[in-house]
Each structure stands twice: as C-alpha cells, then as structure tokens.
Amino acid sequence: MLHPTGNGVAFIGSGSARLTTALSNDDLSQIVETSDEWIATRTGIRQRHIAGPAESLQSLATAAARGAIAMAQLQPADIDLIVLATSTPDDLFGSACQIQAALGAQRAVAFDLTAACSGFVFATVTAAQFLRNGVYRNAVVIGADLLTRWVDWADRRTCVLFGDGAGAVVLQAAERDRLLGFELCSDGSMNDCLTLSYQGESQPLAGELTVQKGGFQPITMNGREVYRFAVNRVPEVLEKSLFHAGLATEEIDWLILHQANQRILDAVAKRLKLPPERVVSNMAKHGNTSAASIPLALDEWVRAGKIKSGDKIATSGFGAGLTWGAAIFEWG
C-alpha cells in the first residue's frame, strides 16, 4: 500500500536494551592473562555487558524497539517495516519475525540484514528507501548482537573487545528528507581479516554420497589490518557522504562511529578536524557491540539531552565483510 507523504524520511525515536550483567577488565584478568591497564590503554574499553540465561537476541531487540516506538509516540500497530541488523540471530533463519510477534506489530513486514558492525548503517539506508518511495510510512531499524556467544574466552586478542547489546530507531516518511547523504562499501578480498566462519566435516550419507556437518567457529580477527582499514576508509566514506549531503565537516554536531576502539575514533576525528567533545564514545561501558553500537550510543546521547532536534549527525559503521559505510542525518 502506498503512502503518498513525500519522498523524505525523519528520525523520530530511539531506544536501547538495558543489560545488568557487566564483565569488567578486572574480571577478564581472572580468565586470561591481561589487565585493566592493558585493555583500556589499547582499546578504551573498561567493561562490557553480557546477556544472561533468560535473555536472548529477540528479547533485547524487542526492548530496544519498544523504547524507540514509545519515544516516537507511536503504537506497534503503526509500524509497517522492521529491519533487524544482526550477525547473531537466535534462529539462523532470522529473528526479525520473532520481534514482530513480540512487539504485536501485526502489520509490519520484518526481515534480518547481515552486515556485521556496518549493519545498522546498512539497515537504516535500506529502510529509508521503502519510506522514500512511499511503500511504507513507519519503520523500526534495530541493531542487535550477542557476540559473547561466539567469543573464544582463551583468546585475549578478541575476548576483551566484544559485548552484547541492542539499540533501535524509528524512521517515518516525511515531506522534508532528514537522511542527508550516505555511502556504502564492501571489499570481500579482505574477508579473512575478521570472521565468524562455518567449519564442516564430510560425513557418509548413502553409498558414495557425503554431507557436510559442522558449526560456526569463534571470532577471529587480524586487529592490525582491521585498524589500518578503519582509519583509512572511514574518514574517506564520511567525506563522500558529507559531499552527497552538501555539508562541510564543521556543520556536523555529532560524530557517532561504530564503537570498536577509542584509538580509531580519535584518529578519524583528527583527520576530519572534529573536536573531541563532538565525538560520541560509550565503549568504555559497553565494549564493541557490533551492529548495536551506533544506536546504543545514539539513544544514550538523546536521552541525556545532548542530541537535540535539528542536530546533524554523522554515523559510520565498519567491520567484517569487510564492509563500511556512512550516513548523515538530522535528528528529530
């Protein structure tokens, strides 16, 4: 059904899940050979949250979506589209439909989108196209990941980085377009730099026929290559997005990057000549939450009254694939 409301999109609500269980750097030092100083100086992370036995990707994503819908002053029945950005669904076939049912958003079409740490930016741009062309009016975009499910807790290069989380935004069709510019990129030749890969073994099936049986292996990462990739590609994709938006860097009120490493945030801000007070960082409390990191940080700053209606926000996600992208939008 078409909704002839113009060809723009507005960002009108945010939400996030509240996890109570935190794993500090000192806690980690009892699991692997590390220390709070070693982790904090190299990453900026002090703790990360872990989903408990009673929590799931679906429950956390649903909580984040409920918060965003409430802030937007809508009801679940008003939602036409749900896009879930995740690499860690509860069901390999997808979790978006479970969220749709849990919300009671009976009218909404729901699907998963997998682009790892770039997922929220990719999902936001995807959802916006449905609103811009008049097919849907109200969309919920969720970024949620439970990466602690897939961490090798004996590998101190990766186990210190990742945490669980979920964040969401509500997008609404509008006369004036607040998605000001974007750029999305992929480079599969660098896929082996960051993986959560399937590994199978052949098992006899019948006669000479065999079948592959196996499972997914823990996260592996070439940290040096990922860092080099991020500090080179992220400023570039942000500059292209700003060009599409017709904006100069100094016109941006807030920079919200994927919360992977404080040194990456600092390097990108320095190249863009953005002062530290305009760079959003909450990784000290949450660690790297993959697709959840940008909407988590956005919701925290919105609810603290720091991000206000009319503020221009530059976001960029980057990670496995390798994928990276940026979106420039106006809040409210």
Rank of each mutant, 00 (worst) to 15 (best):
A291L: 00
F182Q: 06
L247W: 05
K285W: 03
S202M: 13
N232A: 11
S202F: 10
A269K: 00
L255D: 03
K240Q: 06
A284P: 01
R228D: 10
V234I: 13
A284W: 02
L238R: 03
V211E: 05
E183A: 14
L265A: 08
V226L: 07
E208G: 13
S202N: 09
G215N: 12
Q199D: 13
D192P: 04
S241Q: 07
R263F: 10
V226S: 09
G188Q: 01
G200H: 13
V268E: 02
N288H: 10
L272N: 03
F229I: 08
T289P: 05
D187W: 05
R224M: 07
E225T: 09
C193L: 15
T249P: 03
L179R: 12
I264N: 01
E183T: 14
Q203T: 11
E183K: 05
M221V: 03
A248M: 12
F229W: 07
P218E: 08
T210S: 13
K270G: 07
F229E: 00
Q203R: 15
C185L: 15
S197W: 07
R224I: 12
V279F: 01
N191Y: 15
F229N: 02
K285P: 00
G287R: 06
G200C: 07
L272V: 01
R278P: 01
R271M: 03
L209N: 14
L272H: 04
F243G: 14
E183M: 08
V231D: 04
S197V: 12
A267N: 14
Q212P: 02
K213N: 06
K213I: 06
A248H: 12
G215D: 13
E225W: 02
V237C: 15
C185V: 03
S290F: 11
M190S: 08
Y227K: 12
A260G: 08
D253H: 06
N191R: 14
L272P: 03
N261K: 08
G188N: 01
T210H: 14
F182V: 02
V211G: 02
H258F: 09
K285A: 07
R224D: 09
P218F: 11
G223D: 11
I252T: 05
L184H: 04
A260R: 07
Q212T: 14
